[in-house]
Design a binder for these strands. Structure first.
Lengths: 127, 127
DNA sequence: ATATCATATGAACAGTCGTTCATGTGAGGC
DNA sequence: GCCTCACATGAACGACTGTTCATATGATAT
């Protein structure tokens, strides 16, 4: 996945001539995360931002599952599941092991599991 | 924002006739989050999945800022910032107060701040 | 009143996404 | 060998997204 948006530095002085709090601007610039981190995290969030992929991740946070079981449980085509898993794999959100013809997927580490669990906690608070 | 993907129930039996672990499928179905929660969280992740919006949220997690300061600090046009803030507002990720002509934005609660902080921790671990 | 400032918003366009369909791969069974 | 199964992948199409540009709003100032 490539970034969809690019910063436009030529706009940085579009506001400077107006009433801007220079302190805030400089402090914010100082605190900003490096572009690489921002891109990678945005890509991660965007990948989790698809309902089907999110369901897959949630399912894998509770059990190791093969493609066919995921498809059956979530009501998706095996092809769609495989495509989704590839996106998750490329961001190293899931890993898999092969056992004969079957590929068993699980989350790559606990970080992602916590992230999703926290997210559900957040949205479930708001009815 | 409307969901981009829809579950296709007619696929749920495409895999049942094959070698599926029925236990896993049933357990996964039982553990699945309600569709409403999935949709809302996916929307939230997708909204955080844009580099510019993510930078805005990160900036607001450190200080209350007006639109113009955000634009100046992030090198975006005020219009783009305003559009981004609207998306964040609609998901109640940010709130704002008006002071004369100026609109000061900040994060709506700590949940979102933690989510983003955890996310950066995660990606910064992987170089 | 007119002008300017800070922000909001609608339309529109190029770019991106996720699905389906068709096909490929590679292991097992006959 | 051939067939089937479980999965992977490429192409393609419709749907969606984020930006820019133009315009609107609403407050302050002169």
């Amino acid at each position: 996945m490539s970034p969809r948006t690019t910063a436009r530095p030529e706009f940085s002085d579009l506001c400077d001539v107006r009433l801007v709090n220079q302190r805030n601007v400089e402090q914010t610039r100082r605190d900003m995360k490096p572009a690489e981190s921002v891109m990678l995290l945005a890509e991660t969030f965007r990948t989790l931002g698809d309902p089907n992929r999110l369901r897959i991740v949630w399912a894998l946070s509770r059990a190791e599952l093969c493609v066919c079981d995921l498809a059956a449980a979530l009501g998706m085509s095996p092809s769609a599941v495989s495509h989704s898993l590839r996106a998750l794999r490329q961001l190293r959100l899931v890993r898999y092991r092969r056992e004969n013809k079957t590929a068993y997927y699980r989350l790559d580490d606990d970080h992602i599991s916590h992230l999703v669990a926290d997210g559900f906690e957040h949205v479930d608070e708001r009815v």
